[in-house]
């Protein structure tokens, strides 16, 4: 869970959560799989259908500004996205990524290469680009790693509640 391997997929420019998933779909559907075909449909039509299981999204500017909809994260996850790396994030989108169990890593992305392998080591605080270049980032706090390991915030909170009920 603290190491992620995938393929770099760039999404360039400032990206809003409206770009990721237009609002009306979250009013129509609750299953992320139903929203997934509409990801980026206004801004980058066809992009969503090219994503593959294990892809790592690479942003170039602020990623995930605007609406609080976590459906922006869950619909990307439904398309196979397993991590997002960007120089900056919209703060609610950033939270939503970790809360749903995928890491959002703030790091300079100018050296990543489209379609090439990416390895993220969260506890070590570094990314390996195309199996040869390293770039470091501050390792996320233990508390956030724990959320990932639990498969998201809700599982974490429910586990903690169960533990305190059982007096553990």
């Amino acid at each position: 869970m603290t190491e992620i391997r995938g393929k770099a997929r760039f999404v360039r420019g400032q990206i809003s959560t409206d770009d990721i998933i237009p609002a009306r779909y979250k009013h129509m559907y609750t299953d992320p799989a139903d929203m997934a075909p509409h990801v980026f449909e206004n801004r980058f039509p066809e992009l969503a259908s090219s994503f593959e299981e294990g892809d790592v999204l690479i942003g170039t500017d602020v990623f995930g500004i605007g609406s609080s909809r976590e459906q922006a994260v869950s619909s990307l996850m439904a398309l196979g996205i397993r991590a997002i790396v960007s120089p900056r994030f919209g703060r609610i989108f950033f939270r939503n990524c970790w809360n749903l169990g995928i890491p959002a890593i703030e790091v300079d992305t100018s050296r990543f290469i489209e379609g090439r392998p990416v390895r993220l080591d969260l506890t070590g605080g570094y990314a390996i680009i195309d199996e040869n270049q390293g770039i470091s980032f501050p390792p996320p706090p233990q508390r956030m790693i724990r959320i990932l390991e639990n498969g998201g915030l809700l599982n974490t909170v429910l586990n903690e509640a169960a533990h305190s009920r059982n007096g553990i």
């Binding site: 609080s68 976590e70 994260v73 939270r95 809360n99 749903l100 809700l154 909170v157 509640a161």
Partner: peptide
Amino acid sequence: LGMGVTDIAAAMISGETW
């Protein structure tokens, strides 16, 4: 603070947020 629904759900259950 605006938040996603998982955050909201967690706060409804625990009374807290991070």
